[in-house]
Amino acid sequence: MRRLVPLRVLLALLVALYGRAEYAETNEPVAGPGRHHGPTFNVGKVSSGAIRDFRLGPNVRLGIGAQYARNFMPDGLAAPYGGEPGGAMAFIRLRVE
């Protein structure tokens, strides 16, 4: 005998996945001569994450998620940015509709 999983159970297990990519030219992190902005650098960032929502009431949802990000930068910016190219975080979100 075959059993089917109810649709509401499948929907309750859904997790939203997301991603983002950024690219910028910046001259802010490194001060040049006379404390003015220094040379221009190309920097980038790629991040991805997931969030799972739980309904708390008819108009309120609580989301629990996590994200990982990876920065891309030239060696000259490693020290001003802290030297670590990646990082992760966990978060909660309260959504009132």
Rank of each mutant, 00 (worst) to 15 (best):
M1I: 09
M1H: 12
R2I: 14
L4T: 12
L4F: 11
L4P: 02
P6S: 13
L7M: 11
L7G: 10
V9R: 14
V9S: 08
V9K: 12
L10W: 10
L10A: 12
L10N: 07
L11T: 06
L14N: 13
L14W: 04
V15A: 13
A16H: 12
A16W: 11
L17D: 02
Y18F: 13
Y18M: 00
G19F: 03
G19T: 04
R20P: 00
A24I: 05
T26M: 10
T26E: 11
T26I: 15
N27S: 14
E28N: 08
P29V: 08
P29E: 03
V30Y: 06
V30I: 15
P33I: 08
H36L: 12
H36Q: 14
H37M: 04
H37R: 15
G38S: 07
G38F: 03
G38D: 07
P39I: 10
T40M: 04
T40D: 11
F41K: 02
F41N: 08
N42F: 01
G44K: 10
G44E: 09
K45Q: 14
V46M: 08
G49D: 01
A50Q: 03
I51Y: 01
R55Q: 13
R55L: 01
L56H: 05
G57M: 08
G57P: 00
P58L: 00
P58D: 13
N59E: 12
N59Q: 12
N59F: 01
N59P: 01
N59K: 06
V60L: 15
R61W: 11
L62I: 06
G63Q: 02
G65L: 00
G65I: 02
A66Y: 05
A66R: 00
A69I: 03
F72M: 11
F72Q: 07
F72R: 07
M73L: 13
M73G: 04
P74A: 02
P74H: 03
D75I: 00
G76T: 09
G76M: 02
G76W: 01
L77S: 04
L77P: 02
A78S: 15
A78T: 13
Y81T: 04
Y81C: 03
Y81W: 14
Y81H: 06
E84F: 05
P85F: 07
G87K: 05
G87A: 05
A88I: 10
M89R: 15
M89Q: 14
A90Y: 09
F91H: 04
F91D: 03
F91S: 04
F91K: 04
F91C: 03
I92L: 13
L94Q: 10
V96Y: 11
V96I: 15
V96D: 02
V96S: 06
E97Y: 09
E97P: 00
